[in-house]
Write a protein that binds this DNA or RNA. Structure first.
Length: 747
DNA sequence: AGCACGCCGACT
DNA sequence: GTCGGCGTGCTC
């Protein structure tokens, strides 16, 4: 290791997979090819790591002695250079550093330097022009040749073995040059294993193979989208369309147009559970030129899908937020479905928002972005109304279906009439009875798991808290235990109060388990299924449950927000919301927005088939604007009210915001460190606003105490610079500080 | 993230 | 006298 590079040596910039580290410079001896995006093995401290070249001509850093690259793994770019730039942007904007951001753009094993490797199947096939031979064949050999003649495409060795053709028979046939062995790449196809119809399913049952006829409104929208695509320049279009207005069909037809023009299409969906449906729709139009990218794939599946995309074999990539880094070239359209959904924000470093990254990617490549939602984020609508996006409205449902009629039930009246224990209001019970009689389905939403949310002592008023977090424990009746929904701590329900020894423990607050029990009691003959994180933990369980509902094997579905998202159930004509206000009380500036979105989405589940839908919304706050606007399906009313609140409180999107969470071993220590950072940040950010510190809403989590402050301003760059400079003065705090740029949740 | 260094408590 | 607990600092 010497300090000054010899003239022939090149100095390169490398992103290493170490959080908090910037780009490092290394010497690349020799004259082999060096490409931006290629992987290199480099020394780092006392170990070796695999990094990614971000620049083949780096400045020599005078402060450091350069070390030599150990090995150049790829002669060509592994990560496409424009995706390298995208990752570098993410690393800077979200203050995570380049290494962690670049890891998002690489499939798992490749981060350890593994080369492309596909699974292979050995397949037997006949040699086309076998040499004439007078040798006599045995019975087994004749059977084998017969089988191969019947299958000119070849027979996998495993199938041959299953039919009694042993390896000895095969060997002698190969020696006689009558049969040969071919090695096929076996795609580890995630759709085949997690799909609903077995390995042969290329399309979702009933999905139309061709474009379906559009309504006048849809046709107008499609024309505007196609104009945007044809322009061939960067543009963002907000497709703001009520539930059931047929946005997906527009995605499909727009994608077809892009593919015809030789451009690739990226489709982002919020959740893994939604990928099979969307992939199915795209496969029914684009066949096997559709790839999948999401974190639920096995490493092998992910590897195969990634390399298919990288080789340019696919036209459409469908996936969750990570798919925004797919190694696709010539992207013409990026579609972000349900753009408001909080799953697009990663809740660990790098804390990126895939919708915003999609926009950055499109800008760099001159592509069109389509943001679709029935309940767009305030951010997107504000951008549209400021002229930065084009807004396309779809105000009507397809097939002239009406929006569901919504009835708000004031639960205070129900309590007065039937006691404070009541969970199912009289109108809801009557409506469910009515649906059961007609053979129609009901969906019941309660966005809270468990049986009771609080176990409360009637003698001393203490409630059962998690010993590791500052939250109450939730009672789960099926497990006969109380559990913490944050750290998963669980324990048997105590007989007596831990504080006073009193024997009168009472359960308050209801969850889906309790609703399931109450619904079963009220409707003994009904077929009931509950869908929440507790019932569908295994891979494919959601899909199976959703299938059963789709086939009409269920009368009443009870669930958390899981059931509200995306899935189209034609048999559901009634939606009941148990406590519409769950979530409204949270100390989060987006509480109202979340409630409005969830209610609007779930009410939109009602009546997509031939029958009109009805929704019954139970609440203690019937006058709240989020509930009122959702009931009226009036986005504009909600937007106006919510923007007033955000403006008054100086919350996003009226200001830019960075949330900073400081952890400590005591509440006081966390507050003291946070206060120190606040002062240092404030000094460097005199024109902005630094708010706090205060104990975080979740003041203690997994035995760590948390203090929080917010940096607000108009431009993110000076805010981020000020904060990072403050952190550089207290480097020992870096491990205990979480910086979240554009936070989606501040809990 | 690793890994080394370093400074205090419980064992051979 | 050493082993090892995890705080702190560094990595081109």
């Amino acid at each position: 290791v010497s300090s000054s590079p010899a003239p022939t040596d090149r100095v390169i910039s490398v992103a290493v997979p170490v959080p908090g580290l910037g780009l490092l410079s290394y010497r690349a001896p020799g004259s082999g090819p060096l490409a931006k995006g290629a992987r290199v093995r480099v020394p780092l401290g006392g170990r070796e790591v695999v990094g990614c070249i971000t620049d083949t001509q780096a400045p020599t850093n005078p402060g450091h002695t350069l070390r030599d690259v150990i090995d150049v793994i790829d002669p060509e770019p592994f990560v496409p250079p424009d995706v390298v730039d995208l990752a570098l942007w993410v690393g800077e904007y979200y203050a995570s550093g380049p290494g962690a951001a670049l890891a998002l753009a690489m499939p798992p094993a490749s981060r350890e330097g593994a080369r492309e490797s596909f699974a292979r199947t050995r397949v037997l096939e006949l040699v086309p022009d076998p040499p004439a031979s007078d040798a006599r064949l045995g019975d087994k050999q004749r059977v084998a040749l017969e089988l191969l003649r019947a299958h000119p495409e070849g027979v996998p060795t495993a199938d041959a073995t299953a039919k009694g053709i042993g390896s000895g028979t095969v060997r002698s046939l190969v020696e006689r040059a009558l049969v040969r062995i071919r090695e096929d790449v076996r795609w580890r196809d995630p759709f085949a294993t997690s799909g609903t119809d077995g390995p042969a399913a290329w399309s979702v049952a009933g999905a139309p193979l061709q474009d379906v006829a559009l309504t006048v409104e849809q046709a107008d929208a499609l024309r505007r989208l196609e104009d945007g695509l044809a322009a061939g320049v960067f543009r963002t279009m907000l497709l703001n369309g009520v539930t059931g207005s047929g946005k997906t069909e527009l995605y499909l037809q727009l994608a077809a147009r892009a593919v015809t023009a030789g451009r690739r299409v990226l489709v982002l969906v919020p959740e893994i559970a939604l990928t099979p449906v969307v992939v199915g729709l795209f496969r029914s139009r684009f066949g096997d030129r559709v790839a999948i990218q999401h974190s639920g794939l096995s490493d092998g599946e992910r590897h195969d899908q990634w390399h298919r995309i990288r080789r340019g074999e696919v036209a459409v990539v469908v996936g969750t937020r990570t798919a925004v880094f797919a190694p696709t070239e010539h992207v013409g359209v990026l579609i972000v479905d349900e753009e408001h959904d909080s799953s697009y924000k990663q809740d660990e470093a790098p804390r990126y928002h895939a919708r915003d990254v999609a926009i950055v990617r499109a800008r760099a490549q001159g592509a069109l972005v389509v943001l679709g939602s029935a309940t767009p984020s305030l951010e997107s609508v504000q951008n549209a109304r400021a002229g930065r996006y084009d807004e396309i409205r779809l105000r009507r449902r397809v097939m002239n279906r009406d929006l569901a009629t919504v009835r708000i039930v004031d639960m205070r009246e129900e309590y007065a009439a039937a006691g404070a224990d009541v969970t199912l209001s009289r109108p809801l019970v009557a409506a469910i009875t009515n649906r059961l009689g007609r053979g129609e389905q009901t969906m019941v939403l309660l966005n809270r798991r468990g049986y009771a949310t609080v176990v409360f002592c009637r003698q001393c008023a203490a409630s059962l808290e998690c010993p590791h977090c500052s939250v109450s424990l939730t009672f789960h009746r099926t497990q006969r235990r109380v559990r913490c929904h944050y750290c998963n701590y669980a324990t048997a329900v105590p007989r007596r109060c831990g504080a006073c020894g009193g024997e009168f423990l009472e359960q308050l607050g209801i969850g889906t388990e309790r609703i399931e029990a109450d619904v079963r009691t009220a409707f003994p003959g009904a077929r009931i299924v509950r869908i929440d994180r507790d019932t569908v933990r295994r891979r494919g369980a959601v899909t199976r449950a959703i299938d059963a509902i789709g086939r009409g094997q269920v009368d009443i579905v009870i669930g958390t927000q899981m059931i509200a998202k995306g899935h189209d159930f034609p048999g559901v004509t009634l939606v009941g919301v148990i406590s519409a206000d769950v979530g409204l009380g949270l100390a989060d500036f987006r509480a109202g927005e979340r409630t409005f979105q969830l209610l609007t989405q779930v009410v939109g589940r009602a009546g997509r088939g031939d029958h009109p839908g009805e929704a019954i919304v139970q609440t203690l706050y019937p006058g709240h604007y989020a509930i009122q606007a959702a009931a009226a399906q009036d986005y504009d009313a909600f937007y106006a009210q919510e923007m007033q609140f955000r403006t008054a409180m100086r919350y996003p999107p009226t200001v830019a915001m960075i949330s900073v969470l400081v952890k400590g071993r005591s509440a006081e220590a966390a507050m003291a460190d946070a206060l120190d950072l606040v002062k240092r940040t404030r000094r460097r950010h005199p024109h902005g606003q630094v708010v706090g510190p205060a104990p975080a809403a979740l003041a203690k989590l997994k035995d760590e105490f948390r203090a929080q402050f917010f940096v607000k301003g108009q431009q993110r760059k000076p805010m981020r610079t000020a904060l990072l400079a403050a952190l550089d003065e207290r480097p020992e705090l870096k491990r205990r500080v979480i910086v979240d740029v554009d936070p989606v949740s501040v809990l």
